[in-house]
Simulated assay, not measured.
Amino acid sequence: MYAAIGDITAFQNGREMAAWLGLVPKQQSTGGVPTLLGISKRGDTYLRTLLIHGGRTIVRVADKHDDRRNNWIKELNQRRGKNIPAVTVANKNARIAWAVLTKKEPYKAGA
C-alpha cells in the first residue's frame, strides 16, 4: 500500500485516500439533490481489489468473533448482503491504514 500511494501526506484525511482508491460511492447531483451510486472504481485497481478481497474475508469470519466491530459487520451483512459489507470493510481498513501511516504508530484495535 505504501509503495502504491507514495507520499501519504497528499491526503488530508482517510476519506480522501479511500476516494482515491475508489472505495466510496460515486456522487451525482442535480438540482441540489445528491444521489449516491455504486463505488467509483477510481485509483489503483490492484490495491482496491486486494482491499475488497480482504474485506470479504473479514465479513466471512465475522460470525466467529464477538466484539464491537464484528457485531457491526454481522448487522450490516444481515441488512445488505455480502458485497456491500465487503466494500464497507475495505473502506474502513483503508481509512485505518491512512491513520497508521500518517501517525507512524502501531495499530491499536481497542482505540
Rank of each mutant, 00 (worst) to 15 (best):
R15F: 08
R69G: 02
R15L: 06
K64D: 09
A99R: 07
Q28W: 08
D67C: 07
K41E: 09
A109N: 14
L23H: 04
M17G: 03
G38K: 10
R48W: 04
K64F: 04
D44M: 01
K104R: 14
Y46L: 15
V100A: 06
S40W: 02
Q28G: 03
L50D: 06
R69C: 06
N71L: 02
W98Y: 15
A18I: 03
L37F: 14
R48N: 09
Y46A: 14
P34R: 13
R80S: 10
H65I: 02
A94T: 03
M1I: 00
P25W: 12
W98M: 08
V24S: 10
G38E: 04
K82V: 13
A86Y: 05
I39D: 01
A62S: 09
L23F: 09
Y107L: 00
V61G: 05
A97P: 03
V59A: 04
K108T: 14
D7K: 08
I84V: 14
R95Q: 01
G55S: 11
G110D: 15
A62T: 01
K82P: 10
Y2K: 13
P25H: 09
A99T: 12
K103Q: 11
N83W: 01
T49Q: 10
N71Y: 06
L23W: 06
L36E: 06
T30E: 07
R69P: 00
N70K: 13
T35V: 12
G6L: 04
W72P: 00
R56F: 03
R95N: 00
A90D: 03
V89P: 12
G81Q: 09
A90R: 04
G81I: 02
W72E: 00
A3P: 04
T102A: 06
A111W: 15
I58Q: 00
A4Y: 02
G22P: 13
Q28R: 14
